[in-house]
Amino acid sequence: MIDVVLKKGKEKAVHQKHPWIFSGAIDKVKGNPLNGEVIRVLAADQSFLGYGYYNGQSRVAVRLLEWEEDNIIDKAWYHSRLKNAIASRAHLLSDLETNTCRLVFSEADYLPGLIVDKYADYLSLQILSAGMENVKAELIEILIAELNPVGIFDKSDANARTHENLEVSQGLLWGATPPEFIEVKENGVRYHINIADGQKSGFYCDQRDNREILAAYTKDKEVLDCFCYSGGFTLNSLKHGAKHVTSVDSSALAIETLKHNLGLNGFMEHQQTSIQSDVNKQLRSFKEDGKTFDVIILDPPKYAPSRSALDRAARAYKDLNRLGMLLLKSGGILATYSCSGAVDLETFKQIIAWAALDAGREVQIIKQFHQPEDHPIRISFPEGEYLKGLLLRVL
């Protein structure tokens, strides 16, 4: 096994179980490891630190897998890690009201670069590191043995693969080809989702808890759901008795899927309005028309994919939330979210404060939103915390 030796004093983060080693922390590489090859990491004094995937083309040169020298990285090791991740979701898998969740969440489950989502009887696989790509066949074999899915579909189409010198990959990996629509349940709400053509892995299961929390505030209310995608917040609001929901998304596929899901759950046309439009433009149009709402949901895509985009993202979040506040009735509820890992909760609160000041509205924080338990956050890897949100009362 090839040894990667760290510079003196650079072993502290490894001892603290942080899974990333940046290229600048490496003193020397004893050999020529291939991208994704498992290597041994040593401190400057040659003491053992861990095993990890090496990638000489990535800023994150090593993704650590194991800190115990006696634990060899082989098929049995992957099987154990996958079994542990699946077992930790056992209570979610047995929930009769929900049959979709995240089974593996990359570094949080000690499997860097691997994401597995369950959609009813199908699995969606995202591989984002060269190391996991090298053992894809073994991973599929283990998932089949543990879960007996009808099919496994590859959704490894994220930009992160380019940093690992990997081409995007999408298509059937094993079993039956998913139908045009797979029916899943979440919180008792039914969805038809399209794994092959949908965004990311097909469905945003990271908002499961937040949809139900927010829905409790929508009974008999006029609701505006922005960036609605396939209708998670819209459908939960209608289920909890919203008077009317207006849903806005720029994607024609999202609006088409939402309309399909409305019929699937038996909601009537007079209960909901779908608008395909740029959200910011639509919010300005509502303002010009004097339209107001009791509850507004802002769940935009990732505005800050990295820290270098933070300033631009902050301006975008501020303008979006300012427009939302201007459309709320006095005492109305604003549920606002950020899925940008580069924007921490305190920064997000400051952005909301700026938006409130510009809108001339006073705001109270009444709840804070987080990612659900199937998207755990390792205490040694705070970078895994990406989803945050605020439930606000706008006065």
Rank of each mutant, 00 (worst) to 15 (best):
D206L: 08
L65V: 01
E212A: 10
E164T: 05
D95G: 03
T177H: 08
W174A: 13
H18W: 13
C205V: 13
F48R: 11
I195N: 02
I377N: 05
A254R: 05
D95S: 12
M325I: 01
Y78H: 15
K281H: 10
A160P: 03
E385T: 04
R361D: 01
L238V: 02
A355T: 04
F381E: 09
A242C: 13
H370I: 10
D358M: 08
L172S: 04
E138L: 07
I142N: 06
G266I: 05
G31E: 12
D358Q: 07
Q126C: 03
Q276W: 08
I152D: 01
Q282K: 08
K281F: 09
C205H: 04
S251R: 05
L345G: 06
V295H: 00
F22Y: 13
S156F: 00
L173H: 10
P301C: 06
L147S: 03
Y122L: 02
Y303S: 06
A176V: 07
E385K: 09
F293Q: 03
F22E: 12
Q57V: 10
L298I: 02
V29A: 03
R284G: 09
K239G: 05
L42R: 11
N261I: 12
L327S: 03
K349F: 01
A176T: 15
Q46S: 10
A44W: 15
N35L: 15
I377V: 12
A309E: 07
E180C: 05
E11H: 09
L320T: 14
R40Y: 09
I333L: 11
E146H: 06
Y191E: 03
L320F: 11
Q57P: 08
S274E: 08
S23L: 10
L262M: 12
K7W: 05
K8V: 09
L264N: 03
C205N: 15
I379S: 13
F293Y: 14
